[in-house]
Design a protein around this nucleic acid. Sequence first.
DNA 1: CCCTTTTTCGTCATGATGACGATAAGCTTC
DNA 2: GAAGCTTATCGTCATCATGACGAAAAAGGG
Lengths: 225, 225
Amino acid sequence: MADYPAFSVTADLVVLTVQDNEMRVLLVRRGIEPYRGQWALPGGFVLPDEDLDAAAARELREETGLTAPVGHLEQLASYGAPGRDPRGRVVTVAYLALLPHLPAPVAGSDAEGAAWTALPVAELAFDHARILADGVERARAKLEYSPLATAFCPPEFTISELREVYETVWGARLDPRNFHRKVTGTPGFIEPVGRSIAAERGRPAQLFRRGPARLLHPPMLRPTP
Amino acid sequence: MADYPAFSVTADLVVLTVQDNEMRVLLVRRGIEPYRGQWALPGGFVLPDEDLDAAAARELREETGLTAPVGHLEQLASYGAPGRDPRGRVVTVAYLALLPHLPAPVAGSDAEGAAWTALPVAELAFDHARILADGVERARAKLEYSPLATAFCPPEFTISELREVYETVWGARLDPRNFHRKVTGTPGFIEPVGRSIAAERGRPAQLFRRGPARLLHPPMLRPTP
DNA sequence: CCCTTTTTCGTCATGATGACGATAAGCTTC
DNA sequence: GAAGCTTATCGTCATCATGACGAAAAAGGG
């Protein structure tokens, strides 16, 4: 293999969550050069004996403290333009994580801090703005034909909470009655827990958990403006 | 960068086409170790000053002789499990190409031959069977909500040709009349050329070219069996 | 007790779809 | 040239999904 160009490979994360009707992304403030002091996506180098998915899961665990299989993690895309990293030839395999809102994140070893930042984000290190945009667009599209909106919710949630996820990610208002009919009528999307919970105001809502379906048939299409 | 593990990075291609009601993939017979003599996906190492997309486009050009912007090429996913390549730590960025049927492919420098092989394929080198399966599934899904079926067709095509693409990729029969209504009624999917062409049998069909739409609204969903 | 809020269930018109009849326009065969 | 075959194209109809919206249910606050 010495004949072939040597690359470094990193696994970077687009970690999205929904809170207070805002979409937020987990960012770290870089503590080392290059781009020291700037905000960037969390991530790090893939270890010599580590699979790509394992590296992404490890980075997610290090940044959020997550151990249980909550939320959702999938590969997003890879980025390897020459010059995208001043240190040399670096290929980044980006992953998309969707999580319910969590307590304050933990700063990694080479970061000065970490924070949930509301979108849109002003400026990011490297080509991370592009990676973030790709992740957000992937999330928006996947809500249409997959039940992944539940990944933004805690294990038990109400239909209103689920609707707020859709409204926030899509940036559009949805009719509560039609939304209720749609999600309860799509087999395998959500399952009733059997209990109800009192909200701040109004009639208590039933609790649901995510169902076994991995695809929505038919899909829930974004409203056409 | 010397502190960090060194990887080799390859760009491998899942090149799909449709011919004679069969889906076919472009494979090469490896002329060098490892897996010498076995069939594999075409591809090769990313050059020191080359972007990932450029490497994939170069490999596609080398294998098929394509220069004009015909068909479709997009990134599929990356694969980097330790041990997936006996030569060392290799990360493969896989690309998916959809092409109209072309003349016999050209064998690359380190390959003994190349061939269009009908699916399913018996055995492939490395983890290429998995990559191929992911590419096929991506193609099947994308036909639902994108106009990419036209990438399997020549620049001008009939609605029957387009329907045969759908039927072959999905492995399902579609009603010609409903299909005609759907594709002509979806704005931006296809545009009439204004001429007709005589088929082998039956009434001559109008010719169409691909339209400007990049997404189908509403999507064309696979029939539920 | 009345008002507000949210959940949940219905109603109705509209649009998309599956099933399928009918006509158009070419060819082959007699 | 007429009959017959094949495919393309247009229509019809019932059914299903959806958007718009009314209304009852179930809580809390004045």
